[in-house]
């Protein structure tokens, strides 16, 4: 057989086969990616729709309750005020749960995108306190704050960082019947160290690991209500997305201390991968 016929084509065949395999592989990859994108888009639309459907009736319930209580429909009979207040409290609680479930679903579906910008940690602390102060006062608690500064400008998602603080403070308020809540922020090795210390009920050792499990696997200790668990799962995801970490020390009956280490310059997962 001619030399070219025996060696060259064999090599060429092998090349062709390899090219074919590559092409088929790529086509499969493209298909898989398209399918994943379609599924992701469907999920995103579903969540968006769900959010809308849940909020629309809640808007009417909360809107009418608030305006009734504010006297927009005339004076309220004293006997009716109590029940209306209960509707107000419960509807806000329901809204809080709806928000957290949707928020976490969005995060878990992979849509947590950080809006990275420079932020001033002291002002984030101030806005988180403003949001939490009313709840704390209602429970007869004050939140002591210490920002050990001057702190450098942070780089990360300002709103999400505030959400972390608000969730941690909310939980501290919810689970502290008397005593104190202390928020401390300082700088440790290029991280903002955020500590929320309370003199509340604390968490049993066997439950500490459970509280950060993601929502789908969540198995909450009896003493914790669902909202708190959802809040922590959200906190965990936000902190991780910034390249940080969260830990907790707690003793039942004495209190808890949640510590977040948040890189001053957010190290996003995408940046790490590339």
């Amino acid at each position: 057989m001619h030399k070219c016929f025996s060696t060259f084509p064999v090599k060429k065949q092998a090349e062709l086969a390899a090219a074919n395999r590559k092409l088929i592989g790529e086509t499969e990859l493209v298909h898989a990616r398209r399918a994943a994108e379609a599924a992701s888009e469907a999920k995103s639309q579903f969540l968006s729709h769900m959010s809308h459907e849940l909020r629309t009736p809640m808007n009417a319930i909360i809107g009418y309750t608030e305006t009734l209580l504010a006297g927009y429909y005339g004076e309220i009979e004293p006997k009716s005020r109590g029940p209306l207040e209960r509707i107000r409290i419960n509807s806000r609680h329901l809204l809080d749960l709806v928000n957290k479930v949707l928020n976490l679903s969005v995060i878990e579906a992979g849509y947590l995108e950080l809006n990275v910008e420079e932020y001033d940690m002291a002002s984030v602390v101030a806005s988180a306190l403003a949001t939490t102060a009313t709840l704390a006062e209602a429970r007869g608690l004050t939140i002591e704050t210490e920002v050990v500064g001057p702190l450098p400008k942070g780089l990360g998602d300002r709103m999400r960082v505030a959400e972390v603080l608000i969730n941690l403070l909310h939980n501290a308020v919810k689970f502290t019947d008397e005593g104190f809540i202390r928020l401390t922020v300082d700088l440790v090795d290029g991280n903002f160290r955020i500590r929320v210390l309370d003199s509340g009920r604390g968490i049993a050792p066997e439950n500490i690991l459970k509280i950060f499990k993601d929502f789908s696997k969540i198995s909450l200790p009896d003493e914790m209500e669902a909202g708190a668990g959802l809040g922590l799962a959200i906190v965990d995801q936000i902190v991780k997305k910034h390249g940080g970490s969260i830990s907790v020390q707690s003793e039942p009956g004495k209190g808890s201390c949640f510590t977040v280490l948040l890189p001053v310059r957010a190290v996003t997962l995408e940046a790490k991968a590339s």
């Binding site: 959010s51 909020r55 928000n99 928020n103 947590l112 995108e113």
Partner: peptide
Amino acid sequence: TSYAISGD
């Protein structure tokens, strides 16, 4: 609006 998730 009731559209209130990330990105809305």
